[in-house]
Every structure is written in C-alpha cells, then in structure tokens.
Amino acid sequence: MFTAVLYAISISFLLFSLARDRKKTKTAVLKAWKSFANLLPAFLGVLSLVGLVLTVLNPDVISRLIGAETGFKGMMLTSAIGAVTLVPGFVAFPLAASLLERGAGIMQLAVFISTLMMVGVVTLPLEISYFGRKEAFLRNAMAYLFSFLVAFIIGMVVS
C-alpha cells in the first residue's frame, strides 16, 4: 500500500518535472541512479545480514530466551536482542503483546521495543557511510542507554 502510494507520487513528480524541464529531469534521474549504485553494496550487505539474523533469532527462540524471568538481567538480554535485530514494528508489537500475556515483564518488553527501533547494529555500515564512525557510535550508544530510561518510565506509568 505504502509502496504503491510512493510509486504514484514519484512517477507523477517525474512526469511533472519532465513537462517542465527535460534537461533537469535527466540530471535528476542520473543522480538518482548514481546514488543508488553507490549504495547498493551496503544495502545488499545489510539486507542479507538481516535475513540471516532474523531467521536464526526467530520469534520462538526470542520468546524462549526471555521466558518469564524479570529483572535487570532480562532487560540486558532483551535490549541486546532489540539492538541487533531489525524486526518490523508490525511483527514486534504483536510479539511483545503475546509475550506480555505469557508473563514477561513490561520493562523487559519496553526496552526491547525501544532498542529495536532506535539502535541499529546491522545498519551501522550504512550509518557510518553517511555520518562517519563517531556519530554512528554516539547515536547508537545514547539510544541504547536512553531505551532503559524509556523502559523505566513506561514501567512506572503502565503498572
């Protein structure tokens, strides 16, 4: 659905641009292609890594690892899983909801959801190529610590 809208928007912009200025449009398409070709190796690397990690750490394994035990140890584990995996939200939220029903702690799940979204270990190569090592390290480290704060606040509000 989102993809269809995206295509509709970009194609209509392309046609509009073509009608206004052929030369500029050609430059735009060439630039788009050049950037895409530059990034292709990083994209392929990241996506194949996601395919590997996601399959090995499937929801069953994740849920077995977390179990019902709580405490800081559980949070360390869920935050580490959240940081390295790249599960889309529409998979992660129902998974978290079902784990919650089976007795997992709210803070463990909150830190999982938060690190999942904010910390990207597998997207690091891409981020480094855009922002350099220092930014990538700072942003991911801060986001990781911040996820614990978020989890504690959610734990206080929800329970």
Binding site: F2, T3, L6, Y7, I9, S10, I11, F13, L14, S17, K24, T25, T27, A28, V29, L30, K31, A32, W33, S35, F36, F43, L44, L47, S48, V50, G51, L52, L54, T55, V56
Partner: peptide
C-alpha cells in the same frame, strides 16, 4: 534464511527506487 533474505531484497527493490527517484528530483 535464503527465503527471508530474498524477501528482504524484494522489499528493497520495491521501496528504494521511488525514494531515490524522488530524491533526485528534490535535489534538482
């Protein structure tokens, strides 16, 4: 693993081209 990886590739092949096209136009 191979099935999941190919699915990721297909998803990228779907989303990324229009994004780059838009960015090219935006840039110009």
């Amino acid at each position: 693993i191979i099935a999941n990886t190919s699915r990721n590739f297909l998803q990228m092949a779907g989303v990324i081209p229009p994004i780059f096209l838009l960015l090219g136009l935006l840039d110009v």
